[in-house]
């Protein structure tokens, strides 16, 4: 699955702290991504599939507990549930 940022999502980020504030335009309350959540958001670009996202994260982070892949999958599902990301292929031409 290839994900991209939702087309109705407004985004503000801070550098270099890597905090990302997101607001879906149909929502009433923004959310904030920090740390690993912000890193995942950064990798969602409509080009990488989820395996590539995980691979990049595994290269960047020490995952002693071996939970990274599972947690990333769950996190992506959460982002999708909140319509912050959407499948890239849906509107591909």
């Amino acid at each position: 699955m290839i994900w991209r940022h939702g087309t109705l999502v407004a985004e503000v980020r801070t550098e270099p702290a890597g905090r990302v504030a997101l607001l879906h335009l149909d929502a009433t309350q923004p959310v904030v991504l920090d740390g690993t959540a912000a890193a995942i958001w950064e990798l969602i670009d409509g080009r990488r599939d989820h395996a590539e996202v995980i691979a990049e994260l595994e290269a960047a982070f020490e995952d002693a507990a071996g939970q990274l892949a599972h947690q990333v999958e769950a996190f992506l599902a959460s982002l999708e549930a909140q319509r912050l990301i959407e499948a890239a292929h849906k509107t591909s031409h």
Binding site: E15, P16, A17, G18, A21, Q29, P30, V31, V32, L33, D34, G35, T36, A37, A38, A39, I40, E42, L43, D45, R47, R48, E56, L57, A59, A60, F61, E62, D63, A64, A65, Q67, L68, Q71, V72, F75, S78, L79, Q82, L84
Partner: peptide, 24 residues
């Protein structure tokens, strides 16, 4: 864009932690 995390302030080897969506 492909540079991904390389252009962010993620320190290679930083400990992985559970990603969460925090309500602002």
């Amino acid at each position: 864009k492909k540079a991904g995390l390389n252009r962010r302030a993620v320190v290679k080897g930083a400990a992985w932690s559970l990603p969460v969506i925090a309500a602002a």
